[in-house]
Design a protein around this nucleic acid. Structure first.
Ligand SMILES: [Mn+2]
Ligand SMILES: [Mn+2]
Ligand SMILES: [Zn+2]
Ligand SMILES: [Zn+2]
Lengths: 142, 142
DNA sequence: TCCTAAATTGGATTTATTACAAATATAAAG
DNA sequence: CTTTATATTTGTAATAAATCCAATTTAGGA
């Protein structure tokens, strides 16, 4: 996710370059926190008081279709968004909902094989590690 | 998930054996469809016209805590429930939401290692294969 | 500067899930 | 079998994420 690339793509697509879209893209650039739509909205609403949550959702949807952000389904309540679209995995703290990146690792070949045997055309594989983060572990420990 | 085992567990826990709970447990036994709470509710409401969705959720929650069903978060909209709690993975059709079982496969050691290095106490790993099922592939193909 | 299609906004709507209080029913005791 | 205490169910209301929609605003080309 690189602002210049995205601005160029926007122009190529004939899509308008609005302050809201730019703000969302800028806020996402280099962000490793895996924010939800509401997180992004809350971050920006002071600087853009008229910003609407709908615009955040619309822009995320568009960025997703452009392949510039990935939507993560780590837990049932809400989707998280990741401006790093290179293949990698995640660890998710089941206590505080913290998310950290894990490197890319080749998924077990047997799974892809079996999915194909069942007739599936495989598009993606997600590996999610669930655990308790350092801080949450320490809190419980005293 | 075995009815007799569950009935015994219920008795041991001093939990009442209501017709609703038994119906939900029976409907889940051997079910490989990975139903949502509403799927279960719809299946049973003819036979138990007074059944409430709340009871379905309560019972699923209880079965989850008993370790008799697993909650799957394959997509953001809703949780699916799986009476097969042995470790295994899933393929999810992104067109029709069909879910099939995949065998258990050891997750990449590097991921667990890295999660631990980050300070996480690992509790579980989920591998989800996303793809297009046979039927959905054929539909698009003509 | 003007104009128009595209985008934003705010509010309503949908859908999954949880909360809660009143009604009901399990199962133990008499 | 009847009574009773209380666990459970039910129906409805409340939450929360996400989407829909019509009215208003605005980007950007003419
Ligand atoms: Mn990430
Ligand atoms: Mn399964
Ligand atoms: Zn934590
Ligand atoms: Zn399908």
């Amino acid at each position: 996710m690189d602002i210049k690339t995205i601005i160029r793509k926007y122009r190529e697509m004939g899509v308008r370059l609005t302050p809201q879209r730019l703000a969302i893209v800028k806020s996402l650039e280099g962000d490793r926190s895996h924010p939800s739509a509401i997180d992004i909205y809350n971050r920006l609403k002071d600087e853009y008081p008229s910003l609407s949550l709908t615009t955040v959702y619309n822009t995320l949807q568009m960025l997703k279709e452009m392949g510039e952000v990935a939507e993560l389904n780590l837990h049932p309540e809400k989707s998280l968004y990741d401006p790093d679209v290179t293949p990698h995995s995640h660890v998710y703290c089941i206590r505080c909902e913290r998310v950290d990146d894990l490197p890319y690792a080749e998924p077990p070949e047997a799974l892809l094989k079996k999915a194909q045997d069942l007739g599936y055309k495989v598009k993606d594989v997600a590996t999610i590690v669930y655990g308790i983060c350092k801080r949450c572990g320490e809190i419980r420990d005293h």
